[in-house]
Amino acid sequence: MLSFLSNVWDFVWMFFTIFVFFAWLMALFTIITDLFRDRELSGLAKAIWLLFLIFVPFLTALVYLIARGRGMAERASSQMQAQKAATDDYIRSVSGGAAGEIAQAKALLDAGTITAQEFDALKAKSLG
């Protein structure tokens, strides 16, 4: 019975260790990504942060998260907003907007695929 419990706790410890390792890797990659994303930080400061991350990783990561955590969140948020705006602009350019949708609906009406009532419904949906 004792060896079984020992094996179970070894198994639990292994999973905990793997979880902590992956959490550490995610934090490390997030910090490195943030370092290169920050345009206000000089190249020398980035190099110093990276050297400290290599030689004193846990302490440096903790200090970085405490000292620059708010800036990390702001930079990540601004990048996400920029990506969303770029995606929205791309979708608008490809779809043609409301005029494009109405033109497609008109083509379907002319082809006899939809009725006049369905065309009016699609047109109202596109406009409003």
Rank of each mutant, 00 (worst) to 15 (best):
L50M: 09
P57F: 00
I32R: 09
A86T: 07
R70K: 10
V63Y: 15
L41H: 04
V56Y: 10
P57I: 03
S42I: 02
I54E: 04
M80D: 09
Q79K: 10
F55Q: 00
Y64R: 05
D88A: 11
A73S: 02
V56N: 15
R68L: 09
R70N: 04
Q81E: 09
F58P: 04
L41D: 02
T87V: 14
F55M: 02
L50W: 01
I54D: 03
S78N: 10
A85P: 02
I48W: 07
T30E: 14
M80L: 09
E74V: 15
L59H: 12
D89G: 04
D89S: 07
S77I: 13
A61M: 07
A85T: 06
L35T: 03
R37Y: 02
Q81K: 14
A82C: 07
T30V: 03
A73L: 15
R68M: 12
A47F: 06
A45D: 12
L62D: 05
A73C: 00
L51S: 13
L35K: 00
K84R: 14
M80H: 13
E40D: 00
F29V: 06
F58T: 12
Y90R: 09
K46Y: 04
A67I: 03
L53E: 03
I31W: 00
A82G: 12
T87D: 10
Y90P: 05
K46E: 09
W49F: 13
L62T: 04
I31E: 01
A86P: 07
L53R: 06
S42P: 07
I54S: 03
V63G: 01
L28S: 12
L62G: 08
W49D: 05
F58M: 14
I66A: 06
R75W: 00
S78M: 06
T87W: 08
E74Y: 03
Q79P: 02
L62A: 11
F29S: 13
T87E: 14
F55L: 11
I32P: 02
A67Q: 12
A61C: 05
Q81F: 15
A82D: 08
F52T: 11
S78T: 04
A82Q: 06
D34R: 00
I54H: 07
K46I: 08
P57K: 01
K84Y: 11
M80I: 10
A76H: 01
E74L: 09
E74I: 13
L65R: 13
D34E: 00
I48M: 14
K84A: 15
P57W: 00
I32H: 03
I54P: 03
A61F: 00
Q83S: 07
A82T: 05
W49L: 14
A86N: 08
A61I: 13
F36E: 04
L35R: 01
F52K: 15
T33E: 09
R37Q: 13
T60L: 10
S42H: 10
Q83R: 14
Y90W: 04
A73T: 05
K84L: 15
A61Q: 12
F58S: 12
V56H: 06
A67K: 14
E40Y: 04
Q83F: 06
L44M: 12
K84P: 14
A45P: 01
W49M: 12
L28P: 06
R75C: 02
S77F: 15
T87N: 12
I54R: 05
R37G: 11
S42M: 05
Q83M: 06
Q81D: 12
Y64I: 04
